[in-house]
């Protein structure tokens, strides 16, 4: 508990470690191995690591070809280029034939910081989720990431996973009974007044928000939704029925991501107020990551506001 490590580091180490027992795992990068942390894999398994240069589209296609020959490729680049630049290669060369490629996008969201809008990908959940059959993940901490990497190695089919740049506190290892399953959310804290559904580093902020709400006598349930697609409808339904109001928080445009997925599900199955919290349909800006997050309202304080808004709408 409390270890601070970026999910990209946890990912890189886990992939390198787990690949020791699975010779079919191969790893690609597009000249960002030192940033995406695929360098851990490069150091451990240089014969199975392929640097494709600054050519993400080709990288996804080459990975598709290797998957068609029985390998388990993990492709690495920034989220902007994995989901953005090479979206159509991911769709047509990987997802349409259903090939077993794991597309990993590091440096997702506003917390990229100084590099600014061109690198702050806030659309990846939306555009990856829109591809038929594509699994979409965004684990919140190092512990969860290790579980996710293991699960993805053993999952046959295409998946997209976003990693974060910033070091974040490890929280899931302190949760009694925590377990990881693809496509299943995890309740990190129970509550009865409102549910806050989060992924990525917004999970840690949601837990802080829950503490702040508790001080005001509001009991918030925190759900860690590491898998955005397929969405765990069961845990959302239960949250809707038992708490009657939902906030969804993510480091993503409020359009199309986890918030949209939860709102879509609730609208059709269990209508309750769903308040989306994220980036309000605008591009990011350069700045120190913590300040950039704050500038876009990605903070526990704003989650508290959203929770109160959801409560006022609750019947």
């Amino acid at each position: 508990m409390g270890e601070k490590i970026a999910t990209r580091n946890a990912y890189g180490m886990a992939l390198a470690e787990l690949a020791k027992n699975d010779s079919k795992v191969v790893c690609f990068d597009a000249d960002l191995a030192g940033a995406t942390m695929s360098k851990y894999f490069l150091d451990a398994h240089p014969d199975r690591f392929f640097d494709m240069g600054i050519a993400e589209s080709n990288m996804q296609g080459v990975a598709a070809g290797m998957a068609a020959c029985g390998y388990k490729p993990f492709t690495n680049t920034f989220a902007m280029f994995a989901a953005g630049r090479s979206w159509e290669q991911v769709r047509n060369s990987i997802c349409y034939p259903g090939l077993n490629v794991k597309v990993v996008g590091s440096h997702g969201g506003i917390s990229v910081g100084e590099d600014g809008a061109t690198h702050q990908c806030i659309e990846d959940f939306a555009i990856m989720r829109a591809i038929p059959g594509m699994m979409v993940l965004c684990p919140c901490d190092a512990n969860e990431m290790r579980h996710a990497v293991e699960a993805l190695i053993n999952y046959e089919g295409p998946a997209y996973m976003r990693l974060g740049r910033l070091a974040v506190e490890t929280v899931t290892d302190a949760i009694p009974g925590y377990s990881f399953e693809l496509g299943k959310g995890t309740m990190l804290r129970d509550g009865k007044d409102v549910s806050i559904i989060a992924n990525g580093m917004m999970v840690q902020m949601a837990l802080q928000a829950a503490d702040m709400l508790a001080e005001e006598g509001i009991s918030a349930r925190i759900i860690d939704m590491h898998t955005i697609k397929p969405l765990d409808g069961e845990i959302v339904m239960k949250a809707a029925e038992e708490t009657g109001a939902i906030v969804v928080t993510e480091e993503h445009n409020i359009l199309g991501g986890l918030g949209a997925a939860v709102a879509e599900f609730c609208g059709e199955n269990c209508p309750v107020p769903v308040v989306r919290h994220g980036v309000n349909d605008e591009f990011g800006r350069s700045g120190k990551a913590p300040l950039a997050l704050k500038a876009f309202g990605l903070s526990p304080e704003v989650i508290v506001e959203k929770a109160k808004k959801a409560l006022t709408m609750k019947k």
Binding site: R48, F50, S57, Q60, G61, V62, A63, G65, A68, C69
Partner: peptide, 30 residues
């Protein structure tokens, strides 16, 4: 490729097939 025996790769979006062929060749080398 999924429904037609003998097809090794699904293609259609131009420029993408050759990358998958490179991947198959790389897999053969590995």
């Amino acid at each position: 490729m999924k429904h037609i025996p003998g097809v090794d790769m699904s293609t259609g979006s131009l420029g993408q097939g050759i990358s998958t062929a490179v991947g198959m060749a790389l897999a053969g080398k590995l």
